[in-house]
Design a protein around this nucleic acid. Structure first.
Lengths: 359, 359
DNA sequence: CTGAAAGCGCTTACAG
DNA sequence: CTGAAAGCGCTTACAG
């Protein structure tokens, strides 16, 4: 009821109607359903609207139609390049299709995801949830209220885009085996990450097929420090090649290796994933391209297509990751690293479970 | 008038009122001005609201109060780590203060900034514009309509947070001079970047004070490839140390140097800026911390403080960047690089003006 | 402390 | 093709 605190109140539909000598309905139609109007009328309305600087109030429109014209994108960490690239792809696509995008960074916590979804629900027509950590039950509750497309989590009956990195990780393991590596590791993130689990599994299966020993390491929040601090464990286990959940972890491992006077790929081979920073590391990292920007754009398309033609889809859209060869994979080193006879699959204690990255 | 396309319509205030046996006004007050109500009434309303899963409809609230409860953050490129980190800081702070955040990636174009601002205006209480490229006149037009805080652009009379990197760049040049470097370069971005211009100026002034020759290179969009492709120009000019607008450019220079068999800091010294990826490069990059997350959070605070206590501020809030020493600065190389006698300040033609980074 | 009612700026069946 | 009017779900002066 009070005037909005806007410095300069925007003109409303009423003013335009009065100035143009038509009804509010006509002004409204000139913007939303011009085909119902005479060209002359449209012209008259639009020109006076332009003169007055009138722009339809999206909030009023949303309340009236139940269509917000907005979507929200919830993700674990915008500062992670996989997600920032995904944001870019998603936001650009949403913009192209006339939608504005809310962003919610959950700081890797399922709880915040739930809160953000709840708070934004009334303002959006749907959600894209990238790598959601939230429990399945809660996701399904929200799916019952608003259209949702998830990325990189495989929940039956919910629309999702999945980046399938299994073939590429399998190819990477095959390559490593052919180069003589006998003990390899997968350095993953928290178990709540579907993508990380999928990759862990791919490495385990492909490794077994070649009779390799596969060490699984959980690095927690996937960042540089996590990679760096698992190097001791890797060496202790006699690992000569590692595949990681993301490039930044691989880069951290390179740093740790270098600190110990070991070089890549001479002493150790490395395969990352995401392929965003991979071409910028030194040496350039062999990595699995996970097409994050495309995944973001596809998720938005799926969501908006479902909005336009209900019912919303409930199937999965798969993008296949691709192994990109650069300079961090080489033959197994000739002289063996000291192996200390640990059994496979043990979680070495040198692992940093959840190193903080924030200032 | 038609039912919203929501799968499961949310309960409204009316239903809660009926169930709780109170008026709509009372339900409304229980959420927005509980101090006007009896504890017993509040309790009664809130419990039945909770039971029904009622959440106040932010859109209706916005239309009624003129307060959206949203802000928008417009920036040139979310995939640039400086900005993704800034987004993180800004979004977290907005969330803490009860605001939701729209994100708009302008793809480095002033035109899109203008479009995004115009479209979002009715849905937000204010804007944070990070490193806006849009022309000053247009910014001022928008400032007349909505509260705006800008980051890293110095426009008199508009609230802004400025990361002052002059002292740190000056310190870096002093350091380089003391280590015997005689020809240094500043590798910057487009001239529409205030931050880049500020740094260019700082290097020019500090360099002159030491009698150094300073080569200015415009690398266009600041990415890895931009850095890599200016290495020839750098070497041709006899440069032995470069300071860059951002870490990623410095990292690109390292890559280009390495391809030519040159090593950092032995053959060439490098100072980056932003300090986000700096600690992860190889070797770790000496860089100027630009406190991007803090800048984002401060801008949000300035904006929301101004909303709470008008009039909005019109002054500047300065954050001082800090030089962080790592491993990419060393003494000038003993044997000189071949210098080809170009005069200072020329823009070498090997520079890539605007290399594309997108797929 | 609580309620009835007007109004925020649109959209859209319903008439004409 | 165009208009009058109800309604979207809230908030908030105004009464009591």
């Amino acid at each position: 009821m009070t005037k909005p605190p806007t410095v300069n109140a925007s003109p409303t539909i009423r003013l335009v109607a009065r100035e143009a000598g038509v009804s509010q309905a006509t002004v409204s139609r000139a913007f939303s359903q011009p085909d119902l109007l005479t060209p002359a009328t449209i012209e008259k309305v639009l020109s006076t609207a332009k003169r007055l600087g009138y722009v339809p109030n999206q909030v009023a429109r949303a309340l009236s139609t139940g269509r917000a014209g907005n979507i929200a994108l919830i993700l674990p960490d915008v500062a992670d390049s996989f997600f920032s690239s995904l944001v870019r792809g998603a936001q650009a696509q949403a913009y192209k299709r006339g939608y504005a995008t809310f962003i919610g960074d959950s700081d890797e916590t399922g709880y915040l995801e739930d809160v953000l979804i709840t708070k934004l629900a009334a303002q959006v027509d749907g959600f894209v949830l990238a790598s959601p950590r939230i429990e399945e039950k809660l996701i399904r509750k929200h799916v019952g209220r608003k259209p949702i497309v998830i990325i990189n989590r495989d929940l039956e009956g919910i629309a999702r885009v999945l980046v399938d990195t299994v073939p590429a990780f399998t190819a990477a393991v095959n390559l490593l085996a052919s180069l003589g590596h006998r003990t390899i590791a997968y350095v993953g993130a928290t178990s709540s990450s579907w993508a990380s689990q999928q990759r862990a599994e791919a490495v385990a299966v492909a490794g077994a097929a070649h009779g390799l020993r596969v060490v699984q390491i959980a690095a927690g929040r996937p960042n540089h420090e996590a990679g760096r601090s698992c190097v001791d464990a890797l060496l202790r286990e006699g690992v000569t090649a590692a595949l990681t959940v993301g490039d930044i972890v691989a880069q951290g491992i390179m740093a740790g290796l270098s600190e110990r006077g070991l070089s890549v790929p001479h002493d150790f081979s490395l395969v990352g994933c995401d392929d965003i920073i991979a071409s910028t590391t030194y040496p350039p990292l062999t990595s699995v391209n996970a097409f994050s920007a495309l995944a973001g754009a596809n998720a938005v398309d799926l969501l908006l297509d479902g909005l336009a033609n209900p019912p919303s889809p409930t199937d999965s859209h798969v993008i296949t990751g691709e192994l990109v060869t650069r300079s961090t994979v080489g033959p197994a080193p000739a002289k063996k690293q000291p192996v200390q006879g640990k059994t496979r699959g043990q979680k070495p204690r040198a692992t940093t479970p959840n190193p903080s990255r924030r200032k």
